Amino acid sequence: MTKSSRRSGRRPPGVLEQEILDCLTEAGRPLTPGEVQTQLGGELAYTTVMTTLARLHKRGLAEREQAGRAYAYRVASDAEAAQSIAVAAQMSRLLGKGGDRAGVLAHFVADLGPEDEQLLTELLRGLEDGRQGRGSTRRTTGE
């Protein structure tokens, strides 16, 4: 935790989301924001919990259903996909913190094993094919 986050009482990015996802997972049933707030010890503002749950829902990490005037939330039914989305979001946040994006990505790619390199290449080709199909004028290097 940084000095500024200790002084402000704020959690590092992503920690609250993970705590809420853990709470939803442990409950084994949909929880309202008030129930999540209680499960987390009641120290967070209701609006903070509600906003975080709404963000998790928007990102596909949580599903919701009407529960009276509120929503009740549960971890997304495809837990593997939800975990992939969460890890990708964390990677994106960390990448955004560095000043040398190209350097960070170069080191990341250099540390990949052959299978992951191949998978990444296929994913990037698929993205480029999708862009070309939409009429993008962007070109890849080396073409």
Rank of each mutant, 00 (worst) to 15 (best):
E122D: 15
L24Q: 02
A70R: 13
R131A: 15
E26C: 01
V104P: 10
A70G: 01
L24C: 00
D111F: 01
V15E: 12
R125E: 15
P33F: 04
L53S: 04
Y73Q: 07
A70F: 04
R139G: 05
D100T: 04
R139Y: 01
P33A: 06
G103C: 07
P114N: 08
Q18D: 05
Q118H: 15
T25M: 04
L24K: 05
R131L: 15
E63A: 10
P33V: 01
D116Q: 08
A89T: 13
L119P: 02
D111P: 03
Q90I: 10
G126E: 15
T137K: 11
L56H: 00
T47I: 05
S77P: 07
G28Y: 07
G130C: 13
H57G: 01
A88N: 09
E143V: 08
G14T: 11
Q83M: 09
L105D: 06
Q83Y: 14
T137Y: 09
V87A: 11
L105T: 05
G133A: 15
P33G: 06
T52H: 03
A89F: 08
G14Q: 01
A88P: 02
E63V: 02
G126Y: 12
E80H: 05
R101L: 10
L95H: 14
K97S: 09
Q39E: 14
L120A: 15
Y73A: 14
E128Y: 15
L124T: 14
L95N: 04
L31I: 03
A79R: 12
R134V: 06
R69E: 14
H107L: 03
P30S: 08
G98C: 10
R59K: 00
V36F: 08
R138F: 15
S92D: 10
K97E: 15
L105F: 13
Q132L: 14
R93S: 13
R11A: 09
D116I: 02
G135Y: 09
L105N: 00
E35L: 05
G130F: 10
E26L: 11
G126W: 15
D116K: 09
D129H: 11
Y71D: 06
G98D: 12
L95W: 07
R10M: 14
E117I: 04
L24R: 00
Y46V: 02
V109F: 12
Y71T: 01
V36T: 08
G98E: 14
A67V: 09
P30A: 12
T25P: 00
E128G: 07
G142L: 13
E117F: 07
A110V: 06
Q18N: 03
D129C: 03
Q132S: 13
R139W: 06
L124N: 12
G135A: 11
L95S: 10
V36W: 09
A81C: 02
T140D: 05
L31S: 00
A62P: 09
Q18K: 08
V75Y: 11
D22S: 08
E26P: 04
R55L: 07
T2C: 10
D78T: 04
F108K: 02
G135F: 01
G99M: 05
R74M: 07
G98S: 12
P12M: 05
R138I: 13
G34L: 09
Q90Y: 08
E65V: 09
V36Y: 02
K3V: 13
R11F: 10
Y46R: 00
